[in-house]
Structures are given as structure tokens and as C-alpha cells.
Design a protein around this nucleic acid. Structure first.
Lengths: 216, 216, 216, 216
DNA sequence: GATGAATGAGTGTTCATTCAT
DNA sequence: TATGAATGAACACTCATTCAT
């Protein structure tokens, strides 16, 4: 958690630090991010960061959690809870893709929790990161199962797991250097991803989900 | 690429170095792996590593590629090419799970290519890593489509992508600290993963694939 | 010297700052004492310290001098100048021991002027610290020599030096971690020092002094 | 304890590092000694120090212990164990003074264990530092008491404590900036200490000891 | 070919002091 | 006068790589 001081400084300064930190952590990874360079980019003194945060680790955790919040807001913010599963899932994928393309850093930070040498952080964050979506999806599927919109022989846990798995893979494919190469190789796409290349992919994925959930 | 010297040393020495390197890189990540510690664990002199490899990076690339080879051998090695897609995919998931549980380090190394700050490596390895499986799956699906075992309205590229995506998520769930927590949260499992908890999961995944591919 | 401001603030605030400063400087030493931590302990703002004192060094010097005053008051305060050397010396040791046990910080500060890297301070304080006692003891010994209470072949300077030397060693033995261990080792004492262990030690020391000074 | 490496390097390099380290630690104190500056003075790379020692603390402990050894050798090295207490004590003071004047750094290091913020070190070293002399003096006094050379009503522990206390004060007076000022003030000496000023002081101290120990 | 001592740029963190409010 | 945010030099320690033996 940041120190009190962090919340007393002007908002633009605070935002700039968070933005540059998210950017650097995402670009270089936790260990390769240099606090001095971060300070320089954020336009503040190195020592100031330590007036705001206990340590690099403290800063990292906050940046990740903050990124998670922002992602959720962007994706779940304008969701109508009355929509059915299918529409909600479509919304999640579309808004997710849009957000991830304008702010790839947060998805990269998310993906990074699972990388080698980060188990220290995963113990602190993974559950809180995953729980929200897991609960959300399960609740949604269960609700619509009762409404007869989802097959009643579906395993709610497994279904939620599948939906989220496809979400993760898809989003990672939009930001990670490796997964972009992979996506291009599988789909035999050349050049950058455009709406034209992405739309059918989202379609394919949501179709798969429909297949999995929709009553015969 | 290793230097000539590396292939002239006794096999067990070579193996030990590769094993310890894979272990350390997987445990700590590339940057946090210390060449001195590696040398110590491998029972050789620090300088010797530089007699075998140009640099840490050279070693890392070789260890990753070597791990990929070993993984493929374990998974595709005893596959009968005449089996149909479904049986082959089942085999891949089962052998994959088995191999990944006895040698988590290679899957971790694979997963790590996509993490922050590793794009340098992904440019060197991602394509070669992914191409094999992508080609294999596409060829297989296409073949069985011709044999009438796969729906003919299936997009071969997308189908291969989906199969491999589910494979990656599943395997990552067995090794990464983060994805293990996530799996437990979604499936509401407590304690370690056993065959009893994994079997239905594999079943669910292969069922999903069948759903996606099998003619009505 | 403190700035004017320091003497305008409420006495308890002033006292608290001096007390915490003495405590911290004694506990950690000059260099390892953190001005921010001191401010926190004293319940004032970091900047305020700099409203009262020119610098850390200025504060330190004042705290040391103030401690010296307090020590003197405690030890010489209730001394009857008419007592003979022996009684006065006994009084000094007893009151000294009592004061040093309730306020070890001041003796520690005194001892610290002589430690490595503190010659800057010793040039500023040593003389003024030592002069008082040196003069006092010499005057006293000389007076009682004239009264026939001290052997007339005694070297007054040397005698004063010896008395004070024994005083310093004894007091240091009560406060410094090292000298406590040393005292325990020499006297083969176990556990904490009590009046029962200290009394004979004081006796031994004053006997030695008597031996040195008393006419045959 | 130093690492193996330290004992494999050329002796002059080893000696130079120890000499410069003793010098700097004595001049500046533990905390204010800068490893980079030490390396520079010793003519080696900063990293090399860490090939020899685990840490600054490790180095410091070794330098102190090594200094203690050297001091002992210089002082007790050419002592004839058959000499009586008085002659041995005289020898200790004279050789001590000589050694301390040519190598003040070791005595300063010794004195420093007792300074503020060093209790961490005193717990590690004080006993081992003091035990040798304490045992030596006690044994010697006891032996000569049996030989009738020491009054039989003397408390051996206390006597040893007194002898060593006078030794410490005297030696400190030769090296510490503070204690030099103090000595000058008490003895009203001006200028540097010479053999002419020191001889009577040693005489006075040994006389005091004789007074304390010699049979009437 | 094997070894491990040497190197020095790099990194997270601390802290006395300043100064705008 | 009181406050505490800002600063940046300093500092212990790390580590990939080299190279003499």
C-alpha cells in the first residue's frame, strides 16, 4: 500500500507516476525496471518514489492492483446486468479488446504475475485478481441456467473456467510479442491486427462459448 | 548455439548443466538466474559455461529449444499417426499433463517467452516454437476433415488455434503458481491436483473440442 | 547552538525533543541517527528541528552539552564542598552510578566522543567536557593535601587523572554493551548488575584511591 | 570469516587490503567507511572485496580479530613467562605503548566496539577479545600470590580488572583524539606526547599497581 | 579444456536538508 | 512558526563476462 503522502500530491503527478510505472513494468518486467529511470520518466526525484511507496515491490503491487481496477471499470463499467450471458460475454470480449489495445500495459502486468520468479507476487495477488471474474461468470451462468438460457447439464465451474481461459488467450494474443506471433502463425495473418482480422476471431470464440452453453 | 566444445564433454556433464540451467531459469526467470550459482549447481567452473556457450543468452536459447525438443519427444514420440484427431488430441493432453508434471521446468520456460521484457527472445524463438504444433494440428484436422471425421464447415486455422489455446491454459494451470491458484478458484478445488481432479478437467476440455469439431 | 526559536517553544516540547535525541544518539550513534525518526519520536515535524537547530551536528553538540550539565547537576548538585576528598569521591561514584543507571544515554554520549570518526566533535567538546572535572579534582586534592589529608608526595595531576580514569571505566562498565561483558568476564559475575555486585566494586575502587592518596 | 578466495591471493595484496581496511575503519568508524573508497585505496575492484568477504560486516569482524591477534603478538610475543607480575605488567605497558603508537588503528578498533550502535559487534567479539587478557592476568596474579609476591588478601578478579582498566585508559589516551585532549588537560602537557612525558605516566600507573598488589 | 579471481557498471534504498504552504 | 513533500548524492552489494594460469 502506498504511504499517505501519495494521496496528498497533485493528481496529475500521481497519475503520471502510475502511468510511467505501469508502462515500464510492462515493458521491462518487474526486475528489469530501474527505479531511477522510472523517476526520471515520471519527472520526479528518485527519493520521492520512496516518499510514496515503501519499496519497489509495494509500488509494483499497487500498480498491478490499480491496473486491475481500471481494466474492470473499462470492461464491466458500462455493462447492463440484465443482459443475458451471451450478450455480456460478447461485451466483455469487445470492450476487453478495445481496452487492451489502448492500454496493453495492464494486461501485460496481469500476464506477468504468472511468469517465472514471480510466485512471490502471485501469492499476494492471484486470488484477488481471479476471484472477481470467477464469481461474476459463475453467477451469470447460474442465473441464466435458471432462466433456461443455459443447458442444465453444464458444469458451472468448468464453463466459467473455459470462458475466462479463452478470454485470457485472446487478450494475450493482442499484447504479448510471443502470442502475437503465435496468433499470426495459427491464423496465417500477416501484418498488424485490424478489426477485420479480429472480428471473426471474436466471433469464433463466442460461437465456441455458445456451443458450450446454449441449450440444444 | 553452443560452441563445439559443449558437444565434446562427457554426456552426463552436459546433461547436468542443461538440467540445472532449465531448473534455475524456470525457477527464477532469465534475468534473475545467476551464472555463478548455475555453475555451482552444475558442478563446473563459471568460466566453463563460457567455454560451452557464447553468453547467458546463448545458453538460455539453447536450454529453451532443448526443452521444446524434449517436450515434443515425450508427447509426440509414441503417437500413432494413424489415430484420428480425437484420439491424438486426447493423447496429447494426457501425455502432456504427465510430462509437465514430471518436468514442469520446460513448460515454465515456454510460458516465459511471453512475459514482460522477453520480446528479444520471442523474436528469436516464438515462431519456431509454435510452428511445429500449429502445422501438426492443422494437418491433422484437415486430414480428418477429408476423412469425414471433422465437420466440413470448420475453420481449420481457428480450430487448431482453439485446441492449442486450451492446451496451453491447461498446462499452465499445472505449473504456474498463478494459474494453479486460478484453477483452484474456478473449479473450487482444495489441496493439490490429483488424477481424480484432473481427469474430469481433461474430459471437459476434450469434450469441448469434440463439440467444436465433430460432425453433428 | 540552538536558534532563538528553540527557547520560545513550550518547555515540555523542548524537553521531549532533547530526551528523544539523547536516547537515539546514544542508542544508534551520531551517524546512524535518522532525523526523520527523531522528529517522529519527538512528535514534531522534521522541518521543525531545523527551525530550532542549524543542523544535525548543532543538535548533537547541544544534546551532548546538555547531557553533561544534567550529569554534573545530578552528581555535584548535592555535594557539600566541605566534605573531604574521600567522602566527595565516594559521593561522586555513588551518585554517578545511580544517575548513569537511570540515564545511561548521557554517559554513552560522553563515551562516544572518543569513538572512531568523531574527532570533529572531540575538537569542539572534549576540553570543555573534561576541564570541569579535572579542575574540580585537582583543586580538591590540593586543598586536602594542604589540610594534611593527602600525602604530600602525591602528584596532584596524576592523582586526579587516576581518579577520573577509574570513574570512567566504572561508569562505562554500567552502560556499554562491551564493557558490561568485560566486567562480567573479569569479575565472573552472571546475570545483571545489582547493588550487591556493584557495592564491593565501588568499595574496591575507592579503596584503591585511598591507597593512592592517604598518608601512611 | 573470509571466503576461501581471500587466502589464495598473493600475500601482499591480502596485507594491503587488511591494512587499508584497518586504517579506514579506525579513521572513520564502521558505518562511515565506504567500501568503494576502501577498494580504491587497496588498489582493487570493489567487487573483489566481495570475493573475499561475505559483507562489510564480515570484513570488519575479520579486521578487528586480526588486529587483536597482531596486538597480542606484539605485546605478549616476547614476554618471558617466568618474569614476575610486576615485570610482566611493565612489559605489557611498554610494549603496548610502543605498538599502539606505531599501529594506533588496532587500539582504535578495539575501543570502537564499545561505541554507540556497535552492540551488534560487541555481542560477537567482546568476550573473545577480553577473555584472553582477563585469564592471563588472573593466572599471573594468582601464581605470584602463591609465590608470596602478591598480598594474599588481594581479590584476584578485581586486581586483574584494575590492571586492565588502567591499561585501556592509558592506551586510549595515546590514540583517541578525545582522550589525548583529556590527558593533556589532566597532566597539563602541551604538544605531542614524547617518551619524556609518557615515562613518568607509565611509572605512576605501575606504581599504583604495585601499591595495589605488593605485600606490605 | 578447466578454473576461478578480477572487474566495474548497475541497482534499490537512505537521509540530511530545503522550502513552499 | 509548523509542516512535510522534494531532492539527489551516497552507499552496500550483485553479476555477466574476461583472462591468466
Amino acid at each position: 500500500m502506498p504511504k499517505q503522502t501519495f494521496f496528498k500530491i497533485p493528481e496529475d503527478k500521481r497519475e503520471r507516476l502510475l502511468r510511467e510505472a505501469a508502462g515500464l513494468f510492462a515493458e521491462r518486467g518487474y526486475n528489469q525496471t530501474d527505479m531511477a529511470q522510472l523517476a526520471r520518466r515520471a519527472g520526479i526525484a528518485k527519493g520521492s518514489i520512496y516518499n510514496y511507496f515503501e519499496s519497489k515491490e509495494d509500488l509494483y503491487l499497487y500498480v498491478c492492483r490499480d491496473g486491475m481496477q481500471r481494466s474492470r471499470e473499462a470492461i464491466y463499467g458500462r455493462m447492463d446486468p440484465e443482459w443475458d450471458v451471451y450478450r455480456q460475454i460478447e461485451h466483455i470480449f469487445k470492450e476487453g479488446a478495445r481496452f487492451v489495445q489502448s492500454h496493453p500495459e495492464y494486461l501485460i502486468l496481469y500476464a506477468n504475475i504468472s511468469s517465472a520468479g514471480m510466485s512471490r507476487f502471485s501469492e499476494l495477488m492471484s486470488l484477488e485478481v481471479e476471484k472477481y471474474t470467477a464469481d461474476y461468470l459463475k453467477r451469470l451462468i447460474r442465473r441464466d441456467m435458471q432462466r433456461g438460457l443455459v443447458r442444465d447439464d453444464v458444469d458451472v465451474h468448468f464453463a466459467a473456467f473455459m470462458v475466462n481461459s479463452l478470454y485470457i488467450i485472446f487478450m494475450a494474443s493482442l499484447v504479448s510479442s510471443h502470442f502475437k506471433i503465435r496468433l499470426r502463425e495459427y491464423l496465417e495473418i500477416e501484418g498488424d491486427f485490424t478489426d477485420a482480422t479480429l472480428a471473426p476471431l471474436i466471433q469464433g470464440i463466442t460461437d465456441t462459448i455458445n456451443n458450450l452453453l446454449k441449450p440444444a
